[in-house]
Nucleic acid binder design. Structure first.
Lengths: 395, 395
DNA sequence: GAAATACGTTGCCGGACACAACAAACTGCT
DNA sequence: AGCAGTTTGTTGTGTCCGGCAACGTATTTC
């Protein structure tokens, strides 16, 4: 059994380089003066670090506009957003999305295409690779790609990016990571993650949850999953399947779920449940769902009942999760955002009746700040993570 | 917003000292040769580290018995188990337990006394302090106490050790940490933790879960709680209340629970539930519970039904937790151990029908290795943690 | 234009670990 | 008993990293 010893000296350097690069990646252009105070390092050290990063082409330095204060103005360190980038993919139920995301988090370019139902990984990979090729001409000369990140609405094996189970897309043991690697033929690491996980990651890094170290990001599309950050670190579980809260059973012997079990939470708050309760058995997709919320807002009784009921179950499950995790914040993303906004009263009420008072004290309910791009930005964040852990080797 | 920079040089030293001390603390006497390979440090560095620790009186070095192999025998580094110790307390429903635990994890001395029902923190503290005074004469001259750890069956605020809610003991907002500090009058830090958390901690450090970084330790007494370790670190949540799985609601509008909610998991698998289902409404306590398991083993139909039912609910909840956390191991401690052993078939069956197959792949169900002392050893571990994080300053 | 302010740069220092050479301790063989 | 071989402790040297202080520089204020 190997115990981890403390870092060696070059690991200090790596971590400091990573911390500096991460700061400008998340917070944008920053003066060296601010970096010294934030990172707690000496001026001379910051100078040496920025010199290294500039030499590697990861950041650039420039003079600031106007300080307004006395004294020599501090140099501004900014991420090389145009020259250092990652490709981000998002595999959704009926859409495939691709983007080129620059260091710093800006979406530089994007492509979207419809995803035919029953499209498997082997068929999706060429389409995704095609989107990349389309974006290629716009890439400036000398720019470097540091990685590829993929967000998938399903359970992803951490080690190799195999999608174990994704009822919405119909995928079972689809090797999207390997398929993309073969198709792209570029020599950068490809990281695959669950969409809720990566969206949580993004909101934690640069969204509503910035500074919160214990959060639950609830993400709904057809199903429901959660990206959980505990103690500042992503909760992946042993194989990478952590956060499958949609398959927490809330009704014993309840409605049959696509996972094979019964009474899973998502059978009560998922897309199907809400549409069925609203009497729209044949409808599906996000637009149909929004129509239900819209109808409820306009006074449609049946839609209102459906929303209230689903909101009640939403509060029920959130309360359970709050009791288990004692989070600082719960974020409602994807369709859960709409459901939460349409039924906040029910959610609050359930939460207060079931949640332990100590756990309720500091928990805040929020909606995402990053909007529809959260999955893409999060997928890119996945790819950047390697660079930020070791800027000089990975760059 | 302050980002954490990499460690400075003296933090490296601290971490390496801590890693070495932790290794001998957990694994017992170890040769310097083994330490070099395990910690990945140079011989000379190990020599310097052990010299520091020996100087601080935390470890001692000696020549080994017989190696049987050629070459100069490597010095054996052993923890100063007699000279460096912590006090550990466990506040249980009807017992107060105290122990002196040496570095290395050995229980050097112990005292137990009955806990009258309705004994509050202010009254318990003098009793606990008295137990400490009784143990004082046996402390060798020159020995140093590095801290006090307390395990309580309730929700504990991380910051100050306030017991927010503990239905079994009847405590609500009882400041056991502060009361003990005032009563003991010794100048060492006092750390309070939930019994399930500290037991999980102990099993992770030196029990069945050694080497497992994602575990759920389910602990039952009157209620049910969990100590959760995710990614190798304790899941405490924002305020320290994480792991309250006993109050995950499994039956909507179910049986009234002491927490104020309804249908909590512990109303189905807790002591009361099992005794009531077995027709023993007036009984309570661990002995009564064991009598039920005993009766079931001897063929008592009503007891068997009660055990099967509770086991079924046990599997139900565990499956939910497995889906949420994707742990490597689930450990059944306290009364959950007895329940699990008496109903493993039901647990397995429920787990298989509800659990996601990917999450079931690697999960192992186990019983604790540390036995009845887990709470005390874990409480001591809580106290040692500060020493292990910075051996020279805290020693 | 001088003083004040804030910052970048340079050289030096101490600490921490790796490495190599040497000394010490033990086994096994003769 | 003595010697070769093996493994380890010890010591001195080298490298790297960050802190520190002195100095030079850029900007604002008066």
């Amino acid at each position: 059994m190997a115990m981890r010893a403390g870092p060696s000296q070059d690991e200090i350097r790596r971590q400091n380089l990573g911390a500096l690069l991460r700061y400008v990646h998340v917070h944008g252009a920053t003066t060296r003066a601010e970096l010294t105070t934030v990172l707690g390092l000496n001026r001379s050290t910051i100078g040496a670090l920025t010199a290294d990063l500039t030499g590697a082409g990861l950041v650039s330095e420039g003079t600031p506009r106007e300080t307004g204060r006395a004294g020599r103005p501090s140099l501004v360190v900014r991420p090389e957003s145009e020259r250092v980038y990652a490709y981000a993919y998002s595999v959704e139920v009926d859409r495939l999305r691709a983007a080129r995301v620059g260091l710093g988090g800006a979406v530089l370019d994007r492509r979207e295409l419809d995803r035919p139902r029953n499209l498997l990984a082997g068929e999706a990979a060429p389409l995704l690779a095609g989107a990349l090729k389309e974006m290629l001409p716009a890439v400036p000369a000398g720019a470097v790609c540091v990685g590829v990140g993929v967000a998938v609405c399903g359970m992803v094996r951490r080690d190799d990016g195999l999608v174990r189970l994704s009822p919405p897309t119909g995928w079972v043991d689809e090797p999207i990571g390997a398929a993309l690697a073969a198709e792209l033929g570029i020599d950068v690491p490809i990281t695959v993650g669950n969409v809720a996980d990566v969206a949580a990651f993004a909101e934690h890094a640069r969204g509503v949850a910035a500074g919160c170290d214990n959060i639950i990001y609830l993400y709904g599309d057809v199903g429901v999953g959660a990206g959980i950050i505990a103690g500042g670190r992503r909760l992946t579980g042993h194989g990478g399947y952590g956060g499958e809260v949609g398959h927490m059973v809330v009704v014993r012997e309840g409605t049959r779920c696509e996972c094979g079990s019964r009474g899973c939470w998502e059978t009560e708050i998922g897309e199907h449940a809400l549409l069925r309760a609203a009497g729209r058995h044949d409808a599906r997709g996000r637009d149909a769902l929004l129509a239900v919320f819209d109808a409820a807002g306009r006074g449609d009784a049946r839609a209102q009942t459906a929303v209230r009921q689903a909101g009640d179950w939403l509060g029920f499950g959130v309360a359970n999760l709050v009791n288990i995790f004692n989070p600082e914040m719960v974020i409602f993303g994807g369709t859960m955002r709409d459901l939460y906004l349409a039924s906040a009263a029910q959610v609050r009420s359930r939460l207060n009746s079931i949640g332990l008072s100590a756990c309720l004290e500091h928990v805040r309910l929020r909606t995402p700040k990053l909007g529809a791009d959260a999955a893409l930005v999060g997928a890119a964040e996945l790819a950047f993570e390697r660079l930020l852990a070791d800027p000089l080797d990975a760059g």
